[in-house]
Design a protein around this nucleic acid. Sequence first.
DNA 1: CAAGATTGAGTGTTCAATCTTT
DNA 2: AAAGATTGAACACTCAATCTTG
Lengths: 150, 150
Amino acid sequence: MNKGAKGAPPAAESEADRSLLSLILDVADQLQARLENELQRSGLSSAKASTLNFLREAKDPLSLGELAAENACVRSNITQLVDRLENDGLVRRVSDPDDRRVRRAALTSEGRKACKDACAAISHQEKSVAAALSPEEAATLARLLRRLVA
Amino acid sequence: MNKGAKGAPPAAESEADRSLLSLILDVADQLQARLENELQRSGLSSAKASTLNFLREAKDPLSLGELAAENACVRSNITQLVDRLENDGLVRRVSDPDDRRVRRAALTSEGRKACKDACAAISHQEKSVAAALSPEEAATLARLLRRLVA
DNA sequence: CAAGATTGAGTGTTCAATCTTT
DNA sequence: AAAGATTGAACACTCAATCTTG
């Protein structure tokens, strides 16, 4: 993901009390970068890992539209992501015999393996983040964050 | 920016206590989307607004390398961003007489105006985020977030 | 050769237009 | 016509290779 959370502080504030908004965007950017870095060894990006993981959880091949819905993105994004995943040999497009408009993505065994590696990396990163705070602090942080997008 | 903070919860957790990491990434994504939306009226993306704002603060034209440093990104990114900004008529590339390797970006008056509009939109969004919490809560949130990337 | 900038290729994303099938 | 998928164009970003100047 993209990225892009840095600068543009319009009202110059003293480093210490800069806008909460840019702090959140900054921190998220750094955590995302760390995650992407951790994922490196599995050969996947977080976008690819996320898509593979939906497929793995679903058991049966999902249509590209279903993947777009789960991924909260536009259909054409999934078309292209699946292009690259197919190119990597991690998924295969299969036709739906009941409705010839739909194309489904099926995990290959290679895809399943890569997904397992990626999930381990993600879990590791999640634990590393959680470990920086006490359970109470984590709960407070989560509560406050949710208030911002309520 | 980019984006991409959604799914990929590997250890299936009960919606309520899902990973702090994905919560942060999700919230940041939503706030970024709101910001981009707010910025819409100025005709700028946050990437363009950020670059224009560095130029405005610097008074004198900055070299592309300086812009890359301030933006915390790779030089080629700025080359292309400035291409688009120049195409929009918001900046002009000027040569440095002292060192013919460097190219500087100079704000046009149109760029200065767009930047002013964008800054107003950003301030508005910053206030809107800050207003969701009490000052004490905001301080707590900031402190906890900083701990995560310490 | 170092540095500054650019170019080319690849990823991830959006939007608008198009094609196929219902 | 509406739904599912794809394509083409644009944006934002990275990396590796290249060109130009110091």
